[in-house]
Every structure is written in C-alpha cells, then in structure tokens.
C-alpha cells in the first residue's frame, strides 16, 4: 500500500523526502532542507517544508522534540517509519517494473 503517505495528497512528495531524511535521526528545519538537497537534489521551499511537517505531525508520523535553542528538531515515529517503508516498497515495485520494461522495449539505458 501507499497507505498514509498517499493520504497526504499533494504533500506526499515532500512528506516522503522529510521522512526519508528523518529515518537516520532527528533534524531541525534547515538541517532537513540541506539533507534533502543533498540526497534528492530537491530544494524544499520553507512554506512547503512546514506544510509537510504540519501534516506529518497531524498524522502522527513524526513528532516535534524539545527546541534546541531556537531550532526544533523533529523525530520519525514508529508509525512514520512503518508508513515510509510501505510507501517506499510500493514505489520500488513501480521503479523496478518501469526500468525492467524500459530495458526490454527500449534496450538497456
């Protein structure tokens, strides 16, 4: 299933990036932005990032931790990890199917 993540509608993309970034430990807003830039090449604008964070918190997929200075780190929850894994596994099936058929029909890229 794509489950809860796809239930986030237009925020599914940013939410997947945020959850993937938090999967190796808590990060605050700007650390998230930089990390996502690094591994996905996507510049998440601040408004989009916070919209995604809000929804992820609403759905219980991440939680805000005690602020460190003026920065608040966010942490993935067990539910969030589960949802991310289900979502990524579904995406992997699509990726593998697509790549497989491309290599059959269009030759190895």
């Amino acid at each position: 299933m794509t489950g809860e993540l796809s239930a986030l509608g237009r925020y599914t993309g940013p939410a997947t990036l945020v959850l993937s970034s938090l999967a190796d430990g808590p990060k605050h807003g700007y650390a998230l932005t930089k990390d996502i830039e690094h591994f996905a090449g996507v510049h998440l604008a601040p408004g989009t990032l916070y919209a995604a964070l809000d929804r992820l918190v609403d759905h219980g997929l991440i939680e805000g931790l005690e602020a460190v200075g003026r920065r608040r780190p966010y942490k993935i929850t067990a539910v969030g990890a589960t949802a991310l894994m289900a979502h990524l596994q579904a995406q992997r099936r699509v990726t593998e199917t697509g790549l497989g058929r491309l290599s059959g029909e269009w030759g190895t890229p």
Partner: peptide
C-alpha cells in the same frame, strides 16, 4: 521561532530565491 530561524538560514544561505516569498504566502 523555529520558522524564523529556518527562514534566516535559508535567506543567508541562498539570498536570491524568487519563489521563496510567494511559497510562504501561498502556504
């Protein structure tokens, strides 16, 4: 507080980003 810090970091790190303000307003 956390959002202001994020914006400050973003503005310092990437001063020219035409879509950023509009993105905030829309959200």
């Amino acid at each position: 507080e956390e959002f202001v810090v994020l914006l400050e970091d973003s503005m310092v790190d990437r001063p020219f980003w035409p879509g950023r303000s509009l993105n905030i307003v829309m959200n």
